[in-house]
Design a protein around this nucleic acid. Structure first.
Length: 450
DNA sequence: AACCGACTCAACCGCTAGTTT
DNA sequence: AAAACTAGCGGTTGAGTCGGT
């Protein structure tokens, strides 16, 4: 489609430099030269290709001098990198590429250039566009960002790298190494979580956490209510070691991620970013239990960047149990069990009790867990009144209901004639359906839809 | 046919890190 | 050491397309 416009341009513009130069989209360069902006014509492309053939890549600012091409160096570099360089793959991403992107994003976050390095022929821009589009789609559908196998694999890998021990060597590791070790997380965390694998949002780039081991060891596992991946700070590009790390409620208020600011203007956006479907409940948002701790406040300069400078990025939060079928044909491995394990684990319960006071704070998973907790506690109350309570524990009831829903979900999503995009809001928000299905109206359905 | 919203993608912008002077 | 320059990254924007109404 771009091509169509370009072809038209090429027809209109004379096949000489004036065509490339004279365009209404132009601006004055540093030397007073009017540089062109906007789409490239094939004439300009040819000029740039010729230049690179002769002089090689780099020194992009010299392109204008040598060729008379009225484009800034930046623009030339971008054009070459994204469109003109050889061996570029065009066209839609293959399924394998999509899977790889998800996996890489789970590991790296929004490191498009690094991801592109793993996808021959693909550009960072392409990957970024793809991912952003995909994120929008999935968030609209209330789906997690990552396919279950990716999240599970990522978490398992993280556990493996943890179990094999080894502190990482700091920031100077090879990127591949960083990838491998980026899941490293302190024992204190995984000790409390190892029975819950597959349920927690994937945490990546945790390589610094080991640095804080002593600090972490003093913390109760229940404090690790949830994680968010590194939210790539916009203004300060940090090394791989920068780890926004959630230590729920361990920090005093000024150490918390400034949700009060977010809520003012961007709560909906942020909520969406975290996979939430609804505006934050104003009544609950004020005591954000999702406490973001960028560091453990040990004064480490690598993590001392003020929160104000951070910008919330679309998170790598993922809720694998919710990703059903939209990522391929393989069923989510062990996820249901993982959910069960997590919900039944004392750690999880205590976490729920102590930290997850509201689902509004951390996305669908927390919402789900919160609901499970609510259901559980409500059931406890209800069971006092209800004489025909089953032998199953409240948690069991809730869990199995939810899990059954997920199993059904999977079938629904896997049904080729039932694209998730067309499913009901209940499909898009399984927790809602879990409530509706399992509680039979006993409990108020807590909605977080719009 | 016209309108509208979602989507895609190319390109730009602001910024940082690294290098050179 | 500091300023200037360069390359590159990630976020954002805007034009074009497509499908639904």
């Amino acid at each position: 489609m771009r091509r169509m416009k370009k072809d038209i341009e090429d027809e209109v513009l004379p096949n000489d430099m004036s065509g490339a130069q004279l365009n209404d989209e132009s601006y004055e360069g540093s030397a007073g030269i009017v540089l062109k902006k906007g789409p490239w014509t094939s004439t300009e492309d040819d000029i740039l290709v010729d230049y690179v053939k002769k002089h090689g890549e780099g020194n992009w600012n010299a392109v204008q001098k040598h060729t008379g091409l009225f484009r800034c160096g930046k623009s030339c570099r971008l054009r070459w990198a994204n469109h003109l360089r050889p061996n570029l793959k065009k066209g839609p991403f293959a399924a394998e590429e999509e899977r790889l992107i998800a996996e890489l994003h789970a590991k790296m976050g929004n490191k498009w250039a690094r991801m592109a390095a793993h996808l021959p022929g693909r550009t960072d821009n392409e990957i970024k566009n793809y991912w952003n589009t995909r994120i929008k789609r999935r968030q609209r559908a209330g789906l997690p960002l990552y396919p279950p196998e990716v999240s599970l694999h990522a978490l398992q890998e993280s556990q493996h790298s943890q179990s094999t021990g080894g502190l990482n060597g700091g920031d100077k590791m090879h990127p591949d190494f960083l990838q491998k070790n980026s899941y490293e997380i302190h024992d204190a965390i995984f000790d409390s979580l190892k029975d819950n694998q597959g349920i927690l949002p994937y945490v990546h780039e945790l390589s610094d956490i080991s640095v804080y081991g002593n600090k972490l060891k003093g913390l109760d596992s229940s404090q690790y209510c949830s994680f968010v991946p590194p939210t790539s700070p916009k203004r300060k590009r940090l090394k791989e070691s920068t780890i926004p790390f959630i230590d729920s409620c361990a920090m005093n208020k000024k150490d918390l991620y400034p949700f009060d600011q977010i809520q003012d203007n961007n709560s909906d956006k942020i909520a969406q970013s975290f996979g939430m479907q609804a505006p934050l409940d104003p009544g609950l948002s004020s005591h954000s239990s999702m406490c973001y701790s960028h560091s453990l406040s040990n004064g480490n300069s690598s993590t001392s960047k003020p929160y104000e400078a951070m910008k919330l990025e679309l998170p790598s939060l993922q809720y694998p149990e919710l990703d059903l079928g939209s990522w391929g044909s393989s069923p989510p491995p062990s996820l249901l069990e993982s959910v069960d394990d997590f919900l039944q684990s004392p750690t999880a319960i205590s976490t729920l009790e102590s930290d997850c006071s509201s689902p509004q704070n951390s996305g669908l998973l927390d919402a789900l867990l919160y609901q499970a907790k609510t259901m559980s506690s409500s059931k406890n109350h209800c069971s006092d009144k209800s004489s025909n309570s089953s032998t199953a524990t409240p948690g069991d009831r809730a869990d199995s209901s939810i899990l059954n829903v997920y199993e059904t979900e999977w079938e629904d999503y896997a049904d080729p004639v039932s694209p998730f995009g067309a499913t009901s809001i209940l499909n898009e928000c399984p927790a809602l359906r879990a409530n509706a299905n399992s509680l039979n109206g006993q409990l108020p359905v807590q909605t977080f839809t719009g």
